[in-house]
Simulated scan of single mutants.
Amino acid sequence: MRRAPALLPILVLAACKPPAADDYVERTRIGGEVQGPSEAIDSPDTQGAVWAPADKARRLLYGKPGERPLFAIECVGQGAVPMLAYTRFAKADPHAKAVLALIGNSHVTRLPIDAIQINDIWRWEGAAPVTDPRWDVLTGTREVEATVPGAGSVILNPSALPGALVEECRALAQPPSDDEPNPAPSAPEGPA
C-alpha cells in the first residue's frame, strides 16, 4: 500500500503529455528536399605515386607523375608558430567538416580537415602547427595511409621528402640558439 502514494507523482506527470499520434511526423516534416552526403569515392590507386617538390617553396605534392595530385603538404609562415597545411585533392560536400586520419610509422594522427571552396570546386584542406608532435607520422621511412571519410584512403608511399619538410618547417619555429653569435654592442656615443 505504501507504493501507491510514491507512484502518484509519476502518474500525474504521464497524464500531462499527450500520447503519440499518427500525424506526428506530418507536424514536424521539414519542407524541401533533404540532401545527405555525397556518395563516397573509391580509394585511388597509388602504385607509382611519388612525393615531389612543387613550384612553390616548402610545398610537396603527392601523386602519379603527369596526373593530378592526390595530396599536398606545405610549410606556411615562420616565426612563433609555422603551420603545416595539408590538402586532400578530392571532391568535398560544401561546408563539410571531417577528420584526416594519418596512420603509419608507428603513429596514429587525427587532424581536423574542412571543405574549402576554390572557384567552383570544394576540396579538403586543413592546417596545424608544425611543432605539434602528431606530425611525427610523416617523419619515418614507411608508408602512411591518409583517410578522409567519404574521400577514400590514399597510401602515401615511403619518401624522405615529407620528413625533411616537417623538420625544415620546425626549424623555422625554433628561437635562436645560444651558440649563435650576438651582434657586437655599439660603441657608446659621447666625446672622445
Score class of each variant (00 low, 15 high):
S43R: 00
D42I: 06
E39I: 09
T147R: 09
Y62M: 07
W124G: 03
T46E: 07
E143Y: 00
V34I: 15
E168L: 10
I73D: 09
R123F: 03
A72D: 04
F71D: 02
V50K: 05
A127N: 14
A14Q: 14
R59S: 11
I103L: 12
H107V: 12
I118M: 12
V137K: 01
D93C: 06
Q117T: 12
P65I: 04
L172S: 11
P183G: 05
E125Y: 08
P175G: 02
E189H: 09
I103A: 15
V154T: 15
R123E: 06
A40S: 12
D22H: 10
T139D: 02
P188A: 07
D120E: 10
L111C: 09
T46V: 14
G77R: 02
Q35W: 07
Q174W: 03
A187C: 10
Q78V: 07
D45V: 04
E67R: 00
R142C: 04
I103R: 15
N119P: 01
L138W: 00
K91E: 12
C169H: 09
T139A: 02
E26A: 15
H107Y: 12
A173G: 13
A98L: 10
Y86M: 04
T28M: 02
P162I: 05
P53T: 13
R27N: 09
T46P: 03
Q78R: 11
Q35F: 15
S186V: 14
R142A: 10
